[in-house]
């Protein structure tokens, strides 16, 4: 690809088979955009996925791709990356694939910190099996397997990632074509495991579950965009902000100009702080949903220590190993 690479060059020749109006279409577009922006070499890029609607994505990206089995994408991606650390490896998973059947692998991928870019499409429902509640479904979710409302307490993906020791945690909305490609590439550039939760709309089984944060009308009041070094402000006029309540050790929303609050009271985002990441991700309604790069701390990724030692004398070495130990020589 000597000529300038454009977004469409990253689209494969396969027919996309998601439901019309699915949030996955916009995520796919953002992935194509991100790859074009990064000038990614398709021959050195691999998309690995598990099972579910989201996991069909690798078929639609014109790079190398591996559609694997339910929940195991992080493990296969780990094998790919360790076998060839030069590859740019992406993992595509969903809330069921990544946090239910594959929760264990996600935990270990994050703590190991292998250089993978993990995209978790969270639509709070099982789509491909026709609408059962998922591990991120809110309590009381009515579904074919929970007609009276689900009883489970949902997992917060970002908090799970904090607990697993993730070194990069971000959150974005599926339809955010301006912001999402940049976040995807920030994850791609991060050395170590990047965990990106994408709030994705399932138009058939869980429509508008993210409406308050995704709709243009309400987003400003319901989300706070985390930018390193900048105050955590939100609202249409950016007059509201987050402050740490020292008595409760929780974040609270305050309004600039009210009760003597000024900008110096507002927390400044420090993406390197796991404590702040924990506080932000622990917020729930009516507090805003944290978006953007919530946590990023520079580290050495696992595979940098997992280097092979090549001597060029392999056959000699094998012969030496065969002779290891006490030898009985009959000469």
């Amino acid at each position: 690809m000597a000529e300038a690479i454009v977004r469409k060059d990253y689209a494969s020749d396969q027919e996309v088979r998601w439901c019309p109006g699915c949030g996955d279409y916009s995520i796919l577009k953002a992935v194509h955009r991100a790859l074009a922006d990064a000038g990614a070499d398709p021959h050195n890029t691999v998309f690995v996925s598990g099972i579910g609607c989201s996991s069909r994505l690798p078929y639609y990206v014109n790079t190398y791709g591996f559609h694997t089995i339910h929940g195991r994408a992080p493990t296969i991606a780990t094998g790919v990356k360790l076998a060839n650390p030069a590859l740019d490896v992406w993992v595509i998973t969903g809330d069921g694939d990544g946090l239910s059947i594959g929760g264990n692998h996600l935990l270990h991928a994050l703590r190991r910190n292998i250089d993978l870019n993990i995209l978790l499409f969270n639509n709070e429902i099982y789509g491909l099996t026709k609408g059962q509640y998922s591990p991120t479904s809110r309590e009381g979710t009515r579904s074919p397997t929970s007609p009276g409302g689900s009883l489970d307490q949902p997992v917060v993906p970002g908090l799970f990632a904090v607990g697993a020791g993730a070194t990069f945690i971000a959150r974005a909305v599926d339809i955010d074509q301006k912001g999402l490609p940049g976040i995807l590439n920030a994850g791609r550039d991060h050395k170590g495991t990047a965990f990106i939760e994408i709030l994705q709309n399932c138009i058939v089984y869980n429509e508008d579950v993210w409406q308050s944060v995704s709709s243009k009308k309400t987003a400003a009041d319901h989300q706070v965009l985390c930018v390193h070094g900048e105050p955590l402000l939100f609202g249409k006029e950016r007059t509201q902000g987050l402050r740490l309540n020292l008595a409760t050790l929780k974040l609270e929303a305050v309004t600039l100009g009210e009760n003597g609050i000024d900008i110096s009271d507002i927390l400044v985002h420090d993406e390197t702080s796991t404590t702040l990441a924990h506080l932000l991700l622990s917020m729930h309604s009516p507090l805003p949903t944290p978006m953007g790069i919530i946590h990023r701390r520079p580290t050495a990724s696992f595979e940098q220590a997992f280097r092979e030692k090549k001597t060029g004398q392999r056959r000699q070495r094998v012969k030496q190993l065969l002779r290891r130990g006490d030898l009985l020589d009959r000469r």
Binding site: V46, V48, F66, T68, I69, R72, T75, I76, A77, T78, G79, V80, K81, L82, A83, N84, L87, N104, H105, L107, H108, F306, R307, E308, K309, K310, T311, Q313, R314, R317, V318, L321
Partner: peptide, 29 residues
């Protein structure tokens, strides 16, 4: 035994072990 062409990886469970081996084979090892 890396110098003899073998890298080893202790996975988090049996499934991860076989899957990472499959990933390695997909990637040419």
């Amino acid at each position: 035994l890396e110098d003899a062409g073998v890298t080893t990886y202790q996975a988090e469970d049996e499934i991860a072990a076989v899957c990472s081996a499959i990933g390695a084979s997909y990637a040419g090892k």
